[in-house]
């Protein structure tokens, strides 16, 4: 279509909207630099005391550590289970496997509050409330669909003839999987692992229900800080989170660009 007045107007509008999406989050940066003891915009003087507090406070550091442990474990477990499952669904590819795929995607779309209820309900009798295992299992179930999606997308471009060739040349199922299938779906597996990590690292609704004292993740501590709405350490934590998001995003972009290049004919 020719680019008319409407199109140009709309493009300007779209840029304004996109800036509206990103900029509000940046307000955490000035607030985190305030020299005052309460949440405020700094006037003139800047101070790093809230960052200092963030990185010396035992509570915040333990939350960083706990969130890290839970997110890494979730990412590994979800990637392992999700990748196996995606390959299985791809191999079977029947009416039933498509139904199963739709079923396994449900945790991603069912409202989180309902998932939280479900885990809370079952974790009580299983004694998993407020434990690492409980959080990792719950987050894995929520994150595995992500891996399923990214790995399935990679598998969709994989040539099944390569698998047949490998088998004809005498490789076992396991060897074929390890040496032929896995290397060619690597981008999907890595993307899935990254998404699973972020999902767990950020998860708050389910965490609010199934953790209490022993496990106090970073989102949980931020949630508390936001509800109390006084301590500027929350702003410093928010800045650290934004920085981590941006780093993860850059890694992801570089990775996918490299893949695009290697895939291009």
């Amino acid at each position: 279509m020719t680019s008319g007045l409407f199109s140009k107007f709309n493009r300007v509008g779209a840029w304004v909207l996109l800036l509206f999406l990103v900029t509000p989050a940046l307000i955490a940066i000035p607030v985190s630099l305030t020299p005052k003891r309460f949440l405020s915009m700094p006037k003139g003087e800047l101070s790093l005391r809230h960052f200092q507090k963030l990185f010396t406070s035992e509570e915040w550091l333990s939350s960083f550590f706990q969130s890290g442990v839970i997110a890494v474990s979730t990412s590994l477990l979800a990637t392992f289970l999700g990748t196996l499952c995606a390959i299985g669904l791809w191999r079977v590819s029947s009416k039933y496997s498509e139904l199963m795929r739709a079923f396994l995607l449900l945790p991603l779309i069912i409202p989180q509050i309902i998932s939280a209820m479900a885990f809370y309900r079952l974790w009580i009798p299983l004694g998993l409330l407020d434990s690492y295992a409980g959080l990792i299992l719950a987050h894995t179930i929520l994150a595995a669909p992500m891996v399923l999606i990214t790995v399935s997308a990679s598998l969709a471009t994989f040539d099944p003839k390569l698998e047949q060739a490998s088998k004809n040349l005498g490789a076992s199922n396991w060897t074929t999987m390890r040496l032929v299938i896995l290397p060619s779906i690597k981008p999907g597996v890595f993307a899935g692992a990254l998404f699973a990590f972020i999902l767990s690292w950020d998860e708050i609704v389910v965490t609010l229900f199934i953790s209490k004292y022993t496990v106090y993740t970073l989102p949980r501590r931020m949630w508390n800080g936001i509800r109390e709405n006084t301590d500027p350490t929350v702003a410093a934590a928010a800045v650290v989170l934004i920085a981590i998001t941006l780093i993860a995003f850059v890694i992801f972009s570089i990775m996918s660009r490299r893949n695009d290049k290697s895939e291009a004919p």
């Binding site: 990103v22 936001i226 989170l241």
Partner: peptide
């Protein structure tokens, strides 16, 4: 821009709106 906003933690964004 779209994806960065998509990736920024919901808690960070809620906190920003609060401010």
């Amino acid at each position: 821009l779209l994806l960065v906003s998509f990736w920024i933690s919901i808690l960070v964004r809620t906190f920003s709106w609060l401010m």
